[in-house]
């Protein structure tokens, strides 16, 4: 599904990612861990198409296509989803309007008619329940005045609405208490299918108790320095990132 080869990414001329190799297949959950500043969010943003992150070398193939040539919106329409570490507040745009527009843009891309009002409401009701989002939230402006937990739930809600093929969740666990964490993880687990995949980016092992990964990768100074099964997360939790640093 996704093949990243020797990916180098710079921001303002400063190289952050220094040669990433990663392959994600359908049905898999990958966890990317690493200390602060190791380049985790840069990888997520570069995959989603954020323009300020310049790819200087390497390739990314997604569904047999060159991902790097696609606009952010086309990446999303082809099934890529980024759960933001810091979801953006958009005053004046209601979640309902936002999601309706997004779904219709996806449908237009696939040559489908706009979704009917009743189908949309039904779809939304189902997904709201999945993440325990209340109607009083969905009627509000996107993320405006939301608590940290509400913002993250809203990310998972959007993911559920758009049913992505590849979801990249950037520190979805940061700022969540244990109850919110469980709800978010439950949402992710319920959306897991054989034909989709998830990349979970996290600083702590905690989230991985609820979203069990098939692979764990450790990113450090712009490179993946270790890849293994889920047991790697526990080892990291025990020994801390210093262990990786000293091993280097």
């Amino acid at each position: 599904m996704l093949q990243i080869k020797d990916l180098h990414v710079s921001i303002d001329g400063k190289e952050i990612l220094k040669g990433i190799d990663l392959e994600v297949k359908a049905g898999e959950v990958h966890a990317i861990m690493g200390p602060n500043g190791s380049g985790k969010s840069t990888l997520a943003a570069a995959l989603a198409g954020r323009e300020m992150f310049a790819v200087t070398k390497g390739s990314v193939t997604y569904m047999n296509e060159n991902l790097l040539e696609l606009s952010p919106e086309d990446r999303a329409r082809k099934g890529l989803f980024l759960g933001f570490q810091y979801p953006v507040e958009i005053p004046g745009v209601s979640i309902v309007n936002f999601m309706k527009t997004a779904i219709n843009e996806h449908r237009k891309f696939k040559g489908l008619e706009p979704i009917s009002a009743s189908d949309f409401l039904k779809h939304m009701r189902e997904k709201k329940e999945l993440v325990g989002l209340t109607s009083s939230l969905t009627n509000r402006s996107v993320n405006e005045g939301f608590s940290g937990g509400e913002k993250k739930k809203n990310e998972i809600f959007q993911m559920a609405m758009l049913e992505p093929i590849l979801a990249i969740l950037d520190e979805t666990d940061s700022g969540l208490d244990i109850d919110a964490l469980k709800i978010v993880a439950q949402g992710v687990n319920q959306l897991r299918r054989k034909d989709n995949a998830t990349i979970v980016i996290t600083h702590y092992q905690r989230l991985l108790e609820y979203i069990v990964p098939d692979f764990v990768h450790v990113l450090y100074k712009g490179r993946i320095v270790k890849s293994s099964g889920k047991e790697l997360a526990l080892e990291l939790e025990e020994k801390g990132y210093d262990w990786i640093k000293t091993e280097e």
Binding site: S71, L82, V88, V93, A102, F109, L162
Partner: peptide, 10 residues
């Protein structure tokens, strides 16, 4: 970018 990342054209 947030809106575009959800598939909404520029």
């Amino acid at each position: 970018f947030y809106l575009r990342s959800r598939g909404i054209g520029e």
